[in-house]
C-alpha cells in the first residue's frame, strides 16, 4: 500500500530528471526520449504489479463496508 503511494512520486522524480541536469542544454531528443520512455515503461510494469495486490486490498475493504 505504501509502495502505491510512493510510485507516483518516483515517477515525478524520473520525469523531472531531465530538468535537473538542465545546465547542459540543449538536450538530445533521441537519448532523453529513450530515457523517458524507458522510465515510463518501468513505471507501468511496477503499477501493473502493484494493482493486483491493491485490488485485493480494495476488495477486502469494499466487502467490509457496505454502501
Amino acid at each position: 500500500m505504501d509502495a502505491a503511494r510512493v510510485l507516483p512520486f518516483a515517477g515525478l522524480f524520473l520525469f523531472f530528471l531531465p530538468g535537473l541536469y538542465g545546465s547542459d542544454n540543449p538536450h538530445s531528443t533521441a537519448s532523453t526520449g529513450l530515457f523517458l520512455f524507458g522510465s515510463w515503461a518501468g513505471l507501468i510494469v511496477a503499477a501493473a504489479f502493484l494493482s493486483r495486490r491493491l485490488a485485493r486490498i480494495a476488495e477486502d475493504e469494499g466487502s467490509g463496508r457496505k454502501t
Binding site: M1, A4, R5, L7, P8, G11, L36, W40, L43
Partner: peptide, 13 residues
C-alpha cells in the same frame, strides 16, 4: 501524456 500517467499510477492516492 506524462501528467495523466502519473495520476493513474497514483490512483490509490
Amino acid at each position: 501524456y506524462l501528467g495523466p500517467s502519473l495520476v493513474m499510477i497514483g490512483w490509490w492516492l
